[in-house]
Amino acid sequence: MTIKKMRDIEGTTFFDGPMSTKGYPVNKMFHSFNSKDGRDAFVADEEAYMEKFKLNEAQKQCVRDRDVLGLIREGGSIYYLAKIGPILGLNVQDFGGLQTGKTTEEFQAYLDSQGIGKNNG
């Protein structure tokens, strides 16, 4: 098989075709969190909801563990999986911390260290 392999960039997973095939069930579940019904159903019974979307066991375990890096490895796309954030009370800085082994404050400090243009702040 000769599907183009994307460039190796440390700490970066290209969400490409094969990843999208692998992650389709889990991304479809996250996508359903657009609706309040979907969010509520997940909160009410996570296991049943994951089963409904046919997540595989590895994907289910990553959801149970709130393992963001694991979810990305299992084909989750950050665009869809971030929709679990508001359910769990996590924003994208929390997500950043979880993935980089930092606290949210440390992650925010990392962002700030790269800052520009906040002269009037």
Binding site: E10, I78, V92, T100, Q114
Partner: peptide, 13 residues
């Protein structure tokens, strides 16, 4: 910006 992975948070102004 990068939202995902161990490299999350990189900015290159």
């Amino acid at each position: 910006h990068q939202l995902d992975g161990e490299r999350a948070g990189i900015i290159n102004t």
